[in-house]
Design a protein around this nucleic acid. Structure first.
Lengths: 165, 165
DNA sequence: AAAAACTTTCAGAAATATTTGAAAGTATAG
DNA sequence: CTATACTTTCAAATATTTCTGAAAGTTTTT
């Protein structure tokens, strides 16, 4: 397969994957482009390559930096800013896990904990509610713990764990 | 906290969680309602409780059944259909993992595999491309394997695994 | 066979999310 | 200080997704 075709396919696939998991398609595509780049790219170059507006590129680069997976870089004697992403898949996975844990798992854990103190007349409903909420809380806490461990571990730990499966 | 308030909060939180992870909010909310119900609910009851249209409820119930997490039930002497969801959090997680693996991980693995056969004049770019694609493929395959194992395992396996962490 | 009781479908409406582009902002160079 | 080269912002436009509700479909009862 030709390079340009493969590149297009990859960027497209990465964008679709992002969409399916609640990540803006443009953001995922910019990330894909940076993953493939052999050197940091300017906003201009990204606009050009992905046919996106300046504003869109700027906003999504900022979002990627918020996620901690893209870095801004200055070159001496140049005014333009360049952007790059880490190429280590392992680090990337850890960083994404860390952020999603913080943004989504923690809030739901808080809600699940809060609503366990439920009361009311309908004994049966209240009992069922408590049961569901507490089981979800227990399970989510465990998952949360696994992810926390994962985000703090090194690659080796993970591969060792894989062996045990 | 009052039962009705807790219920509202839970349904809302579940819907938000779904949205963030690429699952239709209405679908997640119907699922939340069924999780809390002490007995199967009719489409009518779901419409009423969640203030949704008949069409929306019907479509999302179908989607939930496609995902294998909601079951349709008939009662003798009744024409209406009733819906329920399994209450076992463990089973739920396995089923969702199974489906997402099939729907999203497998397709991306296919793309990653396909694009590894890249060729082109720009040696450096092609080399970088191959490196990124193969590393992503390796990593994704491993994750895929873990999820497959998970979906085929029993709860006990998982808890034993947690101990090892 | 017609009515009743229910479920499904789907075109259009509404809601939501994303994108654009021009104007405003900022920093550096001259 | 002013011009230039860039980045950021954000209101409005566009695209996408979701939702509605009425009509069509189906099954059971009479």
């Amino acid at each position: 397969m030709e390079y340009s075709e493969a590149k297009k396919k990859f960027i497209h696939a990465w964008g679709t994957l992002g969409s399916n998991w609640g990540i803006n398609k443009a953001m995922a595509q910019i990330h894909a482009l940076l993953l493939l780049a052999t050197e940091p790219l300017s906003a201009e170059e990204i606009m050009e390559e992905l046919q996106m507006s300046r504003g869109n590129v700027n906003m999504n680069l900022r979002a990627l930096m918020d996620w901690g997976i893209v870095k801004k870089e200055h070159r001496v004697g140049e005014r333009k800013e360049y952007f790059s992403t880490g190429k280590d898949v392992w680090d990337l996975a850890k960083q994404v896990s860390r952020e999603r844990r913080r943004r989504e798992i923690e809030p739901i854990l808080n809600v699940l904990e809060e609503i366990q103190s439920v009361s009311g007349d309908n004994k049966k409903s209240v009992a069922e509610f408590k049961k569901v909420a507490s089981e979800l809380f227990e399970f989510s806490s465990k998952i949360d713990g696994v992810i926390e461990k994962f985000t703090k571990s090194d690659q080796n730990w993970f591969y060792k764990l894989l062996m045990k499966l």
